[in-house]
Design a protein around this nucleic acid. Structure first.
Length: 436
DNA sequence: TCTGGGGTCCTAGGACCC
DNA sequence: TCTGGGGTCCTAGGACCC
């Protein structure tokens, strides 16, 4: 038996914990560069602001509707996520942290009533950290996801076809009297299912498969031939056959990247060198944090594809490293070589990124070092250790590459974040002050 | 004027080999 | 006109997730 727990409107809810005046108001949180709405409060959803809506499309009508727009504050959300996950782990013996605001919990072998257990845990989360959440329980991950969707929608939209009395927890094994699992499946559009996105949803609907129930009753083998193995798995999971296991040991990433759109277009090489240096350094840091090394560095730049009137340009270069590395200098050097090879003047560059590929465990690589110049390579590792230590202790950017520029507002390429809230829980200077 | 970032998996098709 | 068959590996692109 699986549970899926996730935070409701997670980023907005994190902001509300520290600014209670935002409760009851329409609130949206924007993506990097204040580009799109990536989280909406229920009130904002009710106004018809959809996930991913470009901010400039709705901006003009926000004041009239009383909508508060905030820039994304990832340090805050990450810290709140850690607190949420620590409490959610109490739901059962094994936990898979699936994203910043969701986790699966294996409830196999637990005694007692699972629904009651989930209701108590949800209450504790509200009380201890002030985040609203929903919990779905079912025999497969896909059904737990669906149950979670039911719990959330039932609470958010009183007029929805789902039972109103769930209280934020939907256990498919213990539904309200008179409600069957088939009723919930029949009321759920196929596009709401985990693994069915826009394209598949349109194709399945064209075949007459409009609801989760229709899909659950379909011939899994026939659908595999038409739509591939992923859809077959979804069908079997809906039928109650668990095909997707809980992964409580997170696997090391196979690639690590840092990519950003710029606050304004860039036409010269110098700011690109700064940006790519910084992205390379950040990607290398992520690499060290997961104890990996990379054998290839990919760097890309491109113009703004939404600006049809601009001449478009998109190139990438993949640079193999002489030996796998997690050294900021080595990786930045490779990225800059790639950048110089692909950069052309006369284009308005809108975005750049560094992606580290062919990752391997750092400990595997060390065996080869004795072959040549071991001392020098161990020295590079020690330098990185020292740099990460200083940046951890005194704050990000304390020690950095000279090529990344001297920072400050002089960096014309920095992203826009006009409405960023304080890092209440992760920066001493931003600690909230309580008054008696 | 203004449109995110960071991932994973699957499939089709080409290159290559015997 | 006619030109094997089968297997593996790699890559690019598409679809999905949050």
């Amino acid at each position: 038996m699986f549970a899926l727990l996730d935070g409701n409107n997670f980023y907005v809810s994190c902001e509300r914990v520290f600014r209670p005046s935002l409760h009851g108001r329409p609130v949206i949180v924007l993506s990097n560069n204040d580009g799109c709405a990536i989280a909406r409060s229920n009130e904002a959803k009710a106004l018809g602001i959809r996930m991913g809506t470009p901010f400039h499309e709705v901006r003009a009508r926000l004041p009239e509707a009383g909508v508060v727009a905030l820039s994304a504050n990832y340090p805050l959300y990450g810290d709140m996520s850690n607190r949420l996950m620590a409490l959610a782990a109490g739901l059962g013996p094994r936990q898979e942290i699936y994203s910043i605001d969701e986790c699966f919990v294996d409830m196999q072998g637990l005694g007692g009533d699972l629904r009651d257990r989930a209701l108590r845990l949800r209450e504790r989360i509200t009380q201890w950290i002030g985040l609203p959440c929903s919990i779905g329980i079912g025999p497969t991950k896909t059904l737990a996801k669906l149950a979670n969707h039911v719990a959330k929608e039932a609470e958010r939209r009183p007029g929805s076809p789902y039972p109103a009395e769930l209280g934020g927890v939907c256990d498919l094994g213990r539904l309200p009297a008179g409600v069957a699992v088939g009723d919930l499946l029949a009321a759920t559009p196929v596009g709401e299912l985990w693994g069915i996105g826009r394209q598949l949803s349109a194709q399945l609907q064209a075949e007459g498969l409009r609801t989760a129930l229709a899909l659950a009753r379909a011939d899994a083998a026939a659908l595999r031939r038409r739509f591939g193995v992923a859809v077959e798995r979804t069908v079997r999971e809906l039928q109650g056959c668990a095909c997707i296991a809980l992964e409580d040991e997170p696997a090391a990433r196979q690639e690590v990247s840092c990519t950003r759109a710029f606050g304004q277009p860039v036409t010269t090489l110098a700011p690109l060198v700064e940006a790519v240096s910084e992205y390379a350094a950040r990607a290398a840091f992520k690499l060290r944090r997961q104890a990996s090394k990379a054998a290839q560095v990919l760097v890309f730049i491109h113009t703004n594809p939404f600006r049809r009137s601009d001449r478009q340009y998109a190139r990438s270069a993949t640079i193999p490293l002489r030996r796998p590395s997690a050294d900021t200098g080595t990786i930045a050097d490779a990225a800059l070589r790639g950048l110089r090879a692909i950069w052309r003047p006369d284009y308005r560059i809108h975005k750049a990124g560094v992606i580290l590929l062919e990752l391997q465990d750092a400990s595997l690589v060390q065996g080869e070092l004795a072959m040549e110049g071991e001392a020098a390579w161990a020295g590079a590792d020690r330098l990185m250790l020292a740099m990460d230590g200083l940046n951890d202790r005194y704050g990000r950017g304390t020690v950095q590459l000279a090529s990344a520029g001297l920072g400050g507002e002089a960096r014309s390429w920095s992203m826009k974040q006009q409405w960023r809230t304080p890092q209440y829980t992760t920066r001493w200077e931003d600690l909230p002050v309580a008054r008696a």
